[in-house]
Design a protein around this nucleic acid. Structure first.
Ligand SMILES: [Mn+2]
Ligand SMILES: [Mn+2]
Ligand SMILES: [Zn+2]
Ligand SMILES: [Zn+2]
Lengths: 135, 135
DNA sequence: TATAATTTTAGAATAGTTCTAATATTCATA
DNA sequence: TATGAATATTAGAACTATTCTAAAATTATA
């Protein structure tokens, strides 16, 4: 897929998720959504943008990633104190956390099963279940 | 159990865990280890200390809780960005997280079962498995 | 094109946590 | 019990990830 097609593709995705396809949004989306599963921090994205000659600001990266997450285009994954990860893998899955490296890795969907969930307090519903395996 | 016995008890526990039983450590331990399962933030402990007329400092609460956690007398639980919880329940268990209230609740030991863990990369061992159920 | 709505941005502000280094406490030994 | 070395406590500074502010730029609409 050439650059122009890729750009159009990003536009389509953003529009689909009700996000205005502005220049920096398309650029950041272009860095993240290439079909691979990523777990990026804000700093990662800033570095990726720099490496790709995408001119933007720290505030815009925060704004963009938070907006993507709110729209359901990224998933927030918080492990330890300090920094948030944004996950491009939207399927239901869990994570290995390599503590020394500060790195997340997907555990493929369907492998891990959680059973034995107790009855919930009345009026409560499960929003999500997150399993983190520390290595 | 009277105050003096409780104090002696805290001394014993701290000594058992190779932590010098100093005054503020015994005081903070006394606030936390009363047999109930707690999930406290640093701010919680500062408030508890204040309410109990235990004079200390922010730095000391951080030092003390971190020391306790390192010694295995508390368990660190990080949920969302922002603040760390310290868990007095040392048994293997998982958590409900009440997102709106910012509150943790134990899921009793043995209820939840995690199965289907994939083979680990060579030379890696599981340090811990944490299940967080968001409500 | 003109106008309104939204986004981008630099830098300030915020907040949880750690660091610094001076003072105080604890503990082993005399 | 007194002495001194090791360790702990503390106020405030520093650090860092994130959010906020508000002015300038971009984008959508008429
Ligand atoms: Mn990274
Ligand atoms: Mn609380
Ligand atoms: Zn993932
Ligand atoms: Zn717990």
């Amino acid at each position: 897929m050439n650059t122009q097609d890729h750009n159009l593709n990003m536009s389509r995705i953003l529009t689909e998720y009700n996000i205005r396809p502005t220049t920096i949004r398309k650029n950041i989306a272009g860095l993240l959504f290439d079909g691979t599963d990523r777990h990026v921090s804000v700093d990662d994205v800033i570095e990726m943008a720099h490496a790709a000659n995408v001119k933007t600001s720290v505030a815009s990266v925060y704004n963009t990633l938070n907006r993507f997450a709110l729209a359901g285009l990224l998933r927030r994954v918080s492990v330890d104190l300090g920094r948030m990860f944004f996950d491009t893998n939207l399927s239901e899955h869990h994570h290995f956390y390599y503590e020394n490296e500060g790195r997340l890795e997907d555990i493929p969907h369907g492998l891990i099963k959680v059973s034995g969930l107790p009855k919930l307090p009345k009026g409560r519903a499960v929003k999500s279940i997150n399993v983190m395996v520390w290595l």
